[in-house]
């Protein structure tokens, strides 16, 4: 059951209550039951192995997928969700300004958002993958959402863009709740985030240090194994 409550006074943004998540076509692989509360101002990074259900959880929270069992209560309608990939048609005559309008975001003035600076008046099909990701991210941040959900936001971004993204995450309003998945420790460094690890159909809370330990372990393994391991460790 999905409940949507318009009670802006509450500090809760969303709450999973004994919620089972999954695809109705494959109930056997359902995730849960999950009991998690997201509150205003909280910042979470979701980690877990490939296929552990990170994107599934984010999609469910964003309303893209229904929950299979239990209850998900959403206390705001102002949710912005950036999916892991957004493929573009070969010919797509929309501009960055159109994208902002479609996302319900305010049109940025001047250099209000360095992430999308100089990109908004261009056709979206003429942007590189990294530029497209920057426009998408910028629109999410400009949407004034109470809950921001980012699925691998550093995809396609170069080092400079990742720095801009980290700055933007630092500057999020204090009442905004953030939930994201990322395999990029550089992004999380310096961010005051709690880490949630999805493992064996349940969520464990981890400290950031634990995550870093896992990453240093990854660095020690041989080059041959590295790419395989890196895809499993956040």
């Amino acid at each position: 059951m999905l409940l949507i409550k318009n009670t802006s006074q509450l500090s809760l943004v969303a709450a999973f209550d004994e919620a089972c998540l999954g695809y109705s076509s494959n109930v056997a692989q359902a995730l849960g039951p999950i009991n998690v509360q997201l509150k205003q101002g909280q910042r979470f990074v979701l980690t877990g192995d490939n296929g552990s259900g990170k994107s599934l959880l984010l999609k469910t929270l964003a309303g893209v997928l229904p929950i299979l069992k239990g209850q998900l209560t959403i206390f705001t309608e102002r949710i912005a969700y950036l999916s892991q990939e957004h493929s573009r048609p070969d010919v797509w005559p929309l501009t960055g300004y159109d994208w902002f309008e479609m996302m319900g975001a305010d049109r940025p003035l001047g250099k209000a958002c360095p992430l999308s600076s100089g990109l908004l008046d261009r056709r979206l099909d003429q942007l590189s993958g990294g530029q497209w990701q920057r426009v998408r991210l910028s629109a999410v941040f400009a949407s004034g959402a109470d809950l921001i959900i980012l699925d691998e936001p550093t995809n396609h971004l170069d080092h400079f863009a990742k720095t801009l993204l980290a700055d933007r995450l630092h500057a999020l309003p204090s009442n905004c709740c953030l939930l994201m998945t990322s395999h990029d420790s550089l992004l999380m460094e310096g961010l005051d985030v709690e880490t949630l690890k999805l493992e064996k159909l349940k969520i464990e809370r981890l400290e950031l240090e634990t995550l870093k330990m896992e990453e240093s372990k990854a660095e020690r393994i041989t080059a041959k194994q590295h790419s395989e391991f890196a895809s499993h460790v956040g």
């Binding site: 309608e77 912005a80 479609m102 996302m103 319900g104 999410v140």
Partner: peptide, 11 residues
């Protein structure tokens, strides 16, 4: 156009 992303425009 925005799918699979989601913005703050009312549903």
């Amino acid at each position: 156009q925005i799918m699979p992303d989601r913005g703050c425009a009312p549903r």
